[in-house]
């Protein structure tokens, strides 16, 4: 059986306006990579359909060590939690090449 290594997957769903800042924070705090996709949906901050510039939402996936994921989430919450649409959740994942993350 192939060797698997435990890591954390942190998913951040946020207004596209703060994508750049979120990614910068993530890299600064030790993430080695990230994946961004455009998404749409609704929540406590209303419906966001992504039909034009100011209405866009992104989903940022970051696979990293548990401590790094915690640090990113903590910083994001402190900096953006109060005024921006922001959703975050963690899950346990397994990767094949741990040095990548």
């Amino acid at each position: 059986m192939i060797a698997k290594h435990p890591k954390k997957l942190l998913v951040v769903i946020a207004e596209a306006a703060i994508e750049k800042a979120l990614v910068q924070e993530a890299l600064r705090l030790g993430a080695h990579g990230y994946t961004v996709s455009d998404v749409r949906g609704a929540g406590t901050s209303g419906a966001r359909e992504g039909s034009w510039e100011a209405d866009r939402t992104v989903e940022i996936k970051i696979v990293c060590d548990a401590e790094v994921a915690d640090a990113i989430a903590e910083t994001a919450l402190a900096r953006f939690g109060a005024h921006y649409g922001l959703t975050m959740f963690f899950s346990d994942v397994q990767v094949l090449r741990p040095e990548k993350f």
Binding site: A17, E53, A54, A82, H83, Y84
Partner: peptide
């Protein structure tokens, strides 16, 4: 404006109600 201003104000003044301006 509904392109440049909303984006800039969202970043510079997050406390403002963006839905109201739009």
């Amino acid at each position: 404006s509904y392109i440049a201003a909303p984006t800039a104000m969202r970043i510079a003044v997050p406390q403002a109600n963006a839905a109201l301006s739009i």
